[in-house]
Amino acid sequence: MSVSKWPPILDQLSLEVHHGEFVSLIGPSGCGKSTLFKLIAGLLEPTGGAISWTGGEVSKRLGAISYMPQQDLLLPWRTVRDNCLLPWELKKGRLEPGKHGAVPGKLKKSRAEQAAQLAFITDMLERFGLGRWADAYPHELSGGMRQRAAFLRTLAAGGDLMLLDEPFGALDALTKREMQHWLLSLWGELQRTVLFITHDLEEALLLSDRILLMPRGGGALEEINVDLPRPRQAGVHATPRFLELRMELEQRLTGADLR
């Protein structure tokens, strides 16, 4: 890998995300954003450089960092509820491989856990406006609903760090706006750390604490601090500070020849 004839996809890149932060990554297509996500998630290993995090061993990132791709990737043969239960099912299978030979006490505990998980999913589905659709199959849902279900599945995976790769990129403008406000209203209570890929400047400003601009080739990142107060309301779009930040973002993007 290291003696490839191609230039590295990511080089000289450094970024840091603090616990509880919402950080957006903006950059042109092909600049390596998705590769960076795959590296962080543990699907790929870097040929050089270091990744460190406080959540545990660096080598055990798979299963510890939640990842949500642009396509919802709900399994078509599972209902919405069963899709959301999938991360827990996988985790359970890992923790007790011999579940059929389990001692009764353990079995009871596992049942209780299952009930708790089911209650959590049912409750969250209700709050995500999907309560009526728990038993529906993904193809019966609208794009926005599918994306919300996929988000809930990511949430249920339980990682402290959530990597969201253009989660609203495939939605129409109206649904997208709706989803942004929905995520904004949800954000306060989530207590998670989010790294968010987007091409949408307003979306980045609306949701993030910081925005990182990623040049092609993955060189040094430029940073913009979004000092808009939280909790943010829908009207934040029209505030002078928002427009100012947007202007700055626009300038930096053209200045850095990012597009």
Binding site: L62, G63, A64, L73, L75, L86, E89, L90
Partner: peptide, 24 residues
């Protein structure tokens, strides 16, 4: 590939990938 990447980030083992994803 996209599905199996996603399931792997949830910590799926090879056997789980087979049973939960590839068999269906």
């Amino acid at each position: 590939q996209a599905y199996s990447d996603l399931l792997r980030t949830m910590g799926a083992s090879r056997l789980q990938l087979l049973l939960k994803l590839q068999v269906p």
